[in-house]
């Protein structure tokens, strides 16, 4: 049951077709882990908290720096020097005190990733490097936790939803991250610190990631499973590419 305050807080969800009171209860019962409280994680956490996700987990071992604030909108100037998990948790509590926050001020590694992703309904990948991205994707796949994963740089981004343990209508397995991305050579990847990023780009992709989380929990629409969204904010081009095997005779997959 919702309190009077919650009923008013979530009124626009409760009147919304296909969400309603039962949908809002699903959001309250949901547990969502966001890995990385940076550019992607900031809007994802804020919108998921505002939406009334019952339990939000945050993983980040970094502290807020001044150069984060151009895009990492969950943190404020007064938070500079503070651990990101603390700063993000405080912002979430200020926005929606009904959300329970679980903080993990650690860097994901092979030893801790399994325990950290265990037991969540959905995980959001807001990490800033490929090795951690693959580590997280492998751990989620092994535990059958849906992963909403995205990457951003300069003016561009991509987003997809990974459930590689399921098969599609064609009987073929859904792709995992290794089916979609090349493992980059060490030292060949430019970072946002080197090439820059327009601050709104992770805002757009992180907000879209939160949208996919809500769709997964509510069972609404068509999540980006077996599809990848590619966003070019210079051309304002949003292109969805299929990521499934087209069974064509004589053509190896």
């Amino acid at each position: 049951m919702f309190s009077r305050e919650e009923t008013e807080r979530y009124a626009r969800h409760i009147v919304l077709r296909d969400v309603g009171g039962p949908g809002q209860q699903k959001l309250k019962a949901a547990r969502v882990l966001v890995v990385g409280a940076g550019g992607l994680g900031s809007p994802a956490l804020l919108y998921l908290a505002a939406a009334g996700i019952g339990t939000l987990g945050i993983v980040d071992d970094d502290v807020v720096s001044l150069s984060n604030l151009q895009r990492q909108v969950i943190h404020a100037t007064a938070d500079v020097g503070r651990p990101k998990v603390e700063s993000a948790a405080a912002a979430i509590r200020g926005l929606n005190p009904h959300v329970e926050v679980r903080s993990h001020p650690v860097r994901l590694d092979e030893g801790n990733v399994g325990g950290i992703v265990e037991g969540w309904d959905v995980v959001v990948d807001g990490v800033d490097n490929f090795p951690t991205r693959f580590l997280l994707a492998d751990a989620c796949a092994a535990r059958k936790v849906p992963l909403v994963t995205a990457g951003v740089q300069e003016f561009w981004g991509w987003l997809t939803v990974l459930k590689p343990w399921e098969t599609g209508p064609d009987g073929m397995p859904n792709p995992g991250l290794h089916d979609l991305l090349r493992v980059p050579e060490e030292g060949r990847v430019a970072t946002c610190a080197q090439v820059g990023i327009l601050g709104v780009v992770p805002g757009v992709l992180g907000t879209l990631a939160a949208t996919e989380v809500l769709k997964l929990i509510l069972g609404l629409g068509e999540p980006l499973v077996r599809r990848m969204l590619n966003v070019d904010l210079l051309d304002m081009d949003f292109a969805v590419e299929p990521t499934e095997v087209e069974a064509i005779a004589g053509v190896p997959g």
């Binding site: 290794h178 991305l181 090349r182 499934e244 053509v251």
Partner: peptide
Amino acid sequence: PEVGMLFVRGRHVETDRVLV
């Protein structure tokens, strides 16, 4: 090495993939 994703027919491929 600059390439992150290569899709042919909606699936990641390696660079030695022969196109048809």
